[in-house]
Design a binder for these strands. Structure first.
Lengths: 255, 255
DNA sequence: TTTCCTGTGTGCGCTGGCGCACGGTCCCGC
DNA sequence: GCGGGACCGTGCGCCAGCGCACACAGGAAA
């Protein structure tokens, strides 16, 4: 497990060849009333991050929060002996860095980019100010936090009771939901780190899924062919998290 | 797993034989400035609950939150097939029912009294009003919630990587910290339900601890004889949760 | 084209925890 | 004081997942 800790800068050329990002591509920001978003707007800065980039380290004070637009981030815990486990995934439905407004400023876990892409960066102070107003932003952040709690709790249960096969299905579904696609760029080794299992375990589980025609696997690329079947093979944990997330964050559907 | 779902009422005689409870025995309430506690005071009602009493069921709308004074509560998740796992423990350092102020109103987990004792019950509306003022109460509740999140995350990791032996140690330590004692009234069967393992697994682990002179076990009563040794046998998870809880909730020590 | 590294498939022995079953013992209530 | 039910101890076969080791393949860089 060696993650790059320095963001790779995109060239000016790259920046010019790409359109100006829109904050409303993050669904949490999109759910804000126009007046609140307008207040935040001057503080929001688009950034790009590659796979493996570390958004924050355990115990390290955070300066910013990050709103993913087309990327996903894993909150993962690395233990003394080097083994790791994912606690939760964050995509365009949420925000990375909740401990800033929760008051703790740091967490014992690490946030790592699991799928490269774009974010909006917001200074912690701006977030705290907006949160302190007690308006829509506070409301949204708290509900999102509860959804995150649900995900963590379910991860705990899943780790206890379900097989690697089932957990892989759950993990794929959660990730794909946040990417809004059917393809994932991810090695089996990395998936194993997230699930906290052996790489060989993932190889075997993925092999079964491929034989069943549910996914197609090719050297770091996973494509889901039969999503319904995948949901059927997953444990109940996926459905619980999805249902609860949809309940808590109805804005995910209000287009 | 059959929990009593109706609270056993204490007789008037019992009530008279017992002193009037003090809200400041709950450390979260104790940390409030006098003016805020005074505002809440008229709404706080002392209640007693027995082992196994269910404070709330998954998906059920909550009317009250509960501040334990000398009791502890397990947040646990029960799966479709009946197997269960504890997500976190709450004692006099916190409050049961965070989803009320987080905005979700319900959670997919269940809250069960793990050690009989007393609580202060507060109507949800009173809590929300106070939370909405954005004062000390909000601040405390959010920091407490973050501590709870840490505990859940660590539970997830622990479930993934550590042995039943280690987990039992962690669990005993977390529970005893919240009871401020060295004795626990709890059957091995119940501990097994909390940890989400077999009863026999707990029997074996507890046997080892007893042979090592760390605990003394007698039919539903556990007494810790050598706490330092117990901490040594536990996985890192206990220390992580304790350290983070102490950091987030310094009021636990301000007497 | 060749090289070489990264990623993937496979095999094997080991062990922790599971499911099941049954026997012993403590204590509560009649 | 004497059932009987709740609680605890133990044994056994089974298997998912682990650690390790090695062979093979895709693909990027030289």
């Amino acid at each position: 497990m060696r993650w790059r800790t320095v963001p790779r800068r995109k060239s000016l050329y790259w920046a010019m060849a790409n359109p100006v990002p829109n904050p409303r591509k993050n669904l949490l920001l999109a759910a804000l009333p126009a007046t609140e978003l307008k207040r935040l707007r001057p503080h929001l800065r688009p950034v790009h991050m590659d796979l493996g980039h570390v958004l924050y380290e355990p115990g390290r004070h955070l300066d910013h929060v990050y709103f993913p637009t087309d990327s996903i981030v894993s909150l993962l815990y690395v233990m003394e002996d080097g083994s790791s486990a994912e606690i939760a995934v964050v995509g365009d439905e949420g925000v990375v860095g909740i401990s800033l407004f929760m008051g703790g400023e740091t967490t014992p876990s690490r946030a790592v980019v699991q799928s490269a892409g774009n974010f909006f960066q917001l200074p912690g102070q701006a977030l705290k100010t907006e949160f302190g107003r007690g308006g829509a932003m506070q409301h949204l952040l708290l509900r999102y936090t509860q959804a995150l709690i649900t995900q963590m709790a379910q991860t705990a249960v899943c780790n206890r009771h379900h097989s690697v096969d089932q957990q892989l299905c759950r993990w794929l579904l959660l990730s794909l939901d946040r990417l809004h696609g059917d393809e994932l760029v991810m090695t089996q080794e990395l998936i194993a780190n997230m699930l906290g299992v052996r790489r060989e375990g993932v190889t075997e589980a993925a092999g079964k899924l491929q034989d069943a025609g549910v996914i197609r696997y090719r050297r770091g690329h996973i494509k889901v062919l039969d999503r319904d079947h995948l949901e059927g093979l997953s444990c109940e944990c996926y459905a619980v998290v999805k249902k609860e997330t949809d309940r808590l964050l109805p804005y995910l559907h209000r287009q």
